[in-house]
Nucleic acid binder design. Structure first.
Length: 270
DNA sequence: AAAGGTTGCAACCGCTGGTCT
DNA sequence: CAGACCAGCGGTTGCAACCTT
């Protein structure tokens, strides 16, 4: 039989790679809008594209999908990413769930190209490691070192995650958190409010969330607790990047907890 | 003006986990 | 239960645009 490779491509047909042309975009978009995408491997065949299913899926999710925000990240989005990254590490798809209209790829790129540098500046202990690394090198090696720093950065962010009690949190901390609920950002509903799927039916998503499997439920709760914990530390630490976004911490907290955070991320789902 | 370096972003690659047969 | 297939994820690469010397 015409065996497919693991990545779902059919080896016989020569497949295009690289940047997408406007014609390809149009083909893919109109196909998915009219037919949907039950199976990504068949999409390029049925849509008349010489791409593999994976490529089509990525193009749709990261670029063609309706409801996507383009352009620069707001200060609020930046802080959200920083907060979530400190809790979740490089879980870009999870972080993306809390930023409606942004894709995991976009967030990941933004982190690597911009936010990470700001984050590094705010970490004194990292600074010393950075200078130790760079002192002994010529400028031609800087970009190579930056790659190393990226790795160091990843290790540290994963260490941070590992250091957090990811296993079942104590009832004590749970109680404390609940008693202090006025400080909490409204992240608890964001999983379904902020779903990146433009076709998601929120009412049914909410209903589904009631029947969510117990284990998954527990993990989500723990994740949210971690996020909330680290969110509090952001407010306390005062080292985060409020130089451009000069708002007092309590206003900032109100902004998060009022729900405006999500409203302001005006997403136009169809 | 040109060459070399840097940055930002789109896309690819390979791995993992879930589902189906 | 095992293997095949598939979607999704995170890491990495390639390249065009921009910047610096």
């Amino acid at each position: 039989m015409g065996k497919m490779t693991k990545s779902g491509e059919r080896p016989k047909q020569r497949q295009r790679k690289g940047l997408w042309s406007p014609e390809e975009d149009q083909k893919l978009k109109s196909f998915i809008v009219s037919q949907g995408h039950a199976c990504w491997t068949t999409v390029p065949i049925l849509a008349g594209l010489q791409r593999n299913g994976k490529s089509c899926r990525l193009r749709w999710i990261n670029y063609l999908r309706p409801g996507l925000k383009r352009g620069t990240f707001s200060a609020e989005e930046e802080d959200t990413i920083l907060t979530l990254h400190s809790s979740l590490g490089n879980k870009w798809s999870r972080i993306a769930k809390y930023l409606p209209g942004r894709t995991d790829n976009e967030i990941k790129n933004y982190w690597h190209s911009y936010l990470k540098k700001r984050w590094l500046k705010s970490q004194p202990q990292l600074k010393t490691q950075r200078s130790n690394l760079t002192e002994s090198s010529s400028s031609s090696l800087l970009s190579c070192e930056n790659r190393n720093l990226e790795r160091l950065d990843h290790v540290i962010s994963f260490q941070k995650v590992a250091e957090k009690p990811y296993s079942s949190p104590s009832q004590e901390s749970n109680k404390n958190m609940m008693s202090d609920s006025n400080k909490l950002p409204k992240l608890f509903f964001s999983e379904w409010i902020g779903s990146s799927d433009p076709y998601v039916d929120y009412s049914s998503a909410f209903k589904d969330s009631m029947h969510i499997n117990q284990n998954q439920d527990r993990i989500e709760d723990e994740e949210l607790m971690m996020i909330n914990k680290s969110y509090s530390s952001v407010l306390e630490s005062d080292v985060m990047f409020h130089t451009e976004f000069q708002q007092p911490d309590h206003e900032y907290a109100n902004y998060y907890s009022s729900g405006e955070f999500f409203i302001n991320n005006d997403v136009n789902y169809i």
